[in-house]
Amino acid sequence: MTDTIGIILICIGIAFDFLGVLGLVRLPDVYNRLQAATKCVTFGSMGILLGVIVMQGFTSFGFKALIGIVFIILAAPTAAHAVARAAHRSKIPLAKISVVDKYEEDKELIDETLKEEVEV
């Protein structure tokens, strides 16, 4: 029984991982691709690890999977945030379809505060 549930969870995980990869190919620019990559891949990997926990129970094996889930939740959004910020700072444009970019409008202001910080 637990094996069946575990395998179903792993299959759901793989399906969402696949959708994330599909999004990575289909969506236009780096920011949209990050959206697909972080959300779907985080959820998919969590599903796979959850399946492992269900199949193994709370042995040391299952607990390692649990710690894996915690670290994925902590690390994936942080990495996406870092990549998005770096991309914007190195002037990679948003896709033409985009409607608004408040960050670009405020950028000079942010740069000034950064300079002040460096001087201090």
Binding site: F16, L19, G20, L22, G23, R26, L27, P28, D29, Y31, N32, Q35, A36, K39, C40, T42, F43, H88, L94, A95, I97, S98, V99, V100, D101, K102, Y103, E104, D106
Partner: peptide, 26 residues
């Protein structure tokens, strides 16, 4: 919220027209 997010992104990715309207807001 995370499960909702995943179905939303999955829908966007599968949809043949890609109905997106991206942008950066504050």
């Amino acid at each position: 919220e995370m499960i909702k997010a995943n179905f939303e992104v999955a829908y966007l990715v599968i949809h043949p027209m890609l109905p997106i309207k991206p942008g950066i807001v504050k």
